[in-house]
Amino acid sequence: MFQYLIRRVLWSVVLFLAVTLVTYVLFFLVPANPARQAAGQSASPERVAEVEEFLGLNDPVYVQYYGFLKRLVIDGSLGQSFVDRSSVNDEIFRAAPITASLVFGAMAMVLAISIPIGILSALRPRSLLDRAAMTYVLIGISLPSFWIALVLSYLIGYRLGWTPIAGYCEVVSVPQAANCGGVLDWAYHMILPWFALAIVQAGVYVRFIRAEVMETMSQDYVRTARAKGAPERTVMKDHILRNALLPVVTILGMDIGLLLGGAIFIETVFGLNGLGGTAIRSIGQFDLPTLQGVVIFGAIAIIIFTLIVDLLYAWIDPRIRLS
């Protein structure tokens, strides 16, 4: 178990290096000069060269990469924006809670929708409910998330006026100028984005949970449980779900990690200035340090959540824990 943990952590480091390196290489493959971008449209060539020198863009790529790694590991700093020299750390710390609010709330909603529907579908395959659920799955998988977000925003936010259309409210440390704040306002503003993201994601989960439950129901040990005289409720709770939801934990962890890197479409539609917005802005401005910051944050989120999933898995599945 301990060895397993060490191996996993070492792998995470390799993964981390690979991700940052690829971002660097990709960035320098783009035929554009960040210095020109930073210096402004009307800057003279001398001025651009000065900016290049200042930003360290004249150094070979590996020197820049080394400098970046050194800053990150020794100072824990992601550097400063090419555009306005502001700290990338600050920008990430500002944007991450917004994206995290969106992702965790939406994923909780996904589970609340997909677990009951998935189970009921599996219990009565080809029933009316199952067919309705499968139709929903098809729609959920096929429709682009921004379309659903726009429709929800128009219908529920604008026409019905039940929820705000856009914006984010801080829960703690509400800024003076803000016109909203606190948990209630926060949830009130988040409910539509949550729902939009959840509708799309839940389709995949309903199908997955249905398949897992159906497969587990035909397992021999489920028959054994019935042969022991266990009532259906117990069979479902102790014998089917416990086994069927194991793989759900895996994809849930990966999806959370993935989405934390920025749910760009949903954030944009609902005016949430999270990591997705930061990423798009930094790409447009050739702001390598900020983009790198978002990528690294996303990569770390994925790595951490995969690690959590693996540890959680070992904890709930004795076959992994004890082997």
Partner: peptide, 19 residues
């Protein structure tokens, strides 16, 4: 079931709940 009438199955490798 399980009190008056009990049953054992063919494949002991899969008949017990692994978790």
């Amino acid at each position: 079931r399980g009190s008056e009438i009990a049953m054992i199955f063919q494949d002991p490798m899969t008949s017990l709940n692994p978790v």
